[in-house]
Amino acid sequence: MWSFLARRSPGIFEGDAPLRLWFGLPHWVVISLAASFAVALFTAFVVLRLWPIQEPTD
């Protein structure tokens, strides 16, 4: 999960790239927000499907 979080960093893009607008925002911002959404989706999946229901043993 943490590596996934790290990959959403804007730093993976080139700093001198020309400005490209997606939905009125710089493209790397949209990609970053989309990656955040993906992290949220994956986390929700883990919480709902993979969290243990049964009690742990002492």
Partner: peptide
């Protein structure tokens, strides 16, 4: 726009919960 990273701040807390919250709740 670099402040877009702040969106991940609170999300990181829930990610951290994945490591211990369910077991701690049961206990």
């Amino acid at each position: 726009f670099s402040w877009v990273m702040s969106v991940g701040f609170m999300m990181a807390i829930i990610v951290a919960y994945l490591f211990f919250a369910p077991q701690l709740h049961h206990l």
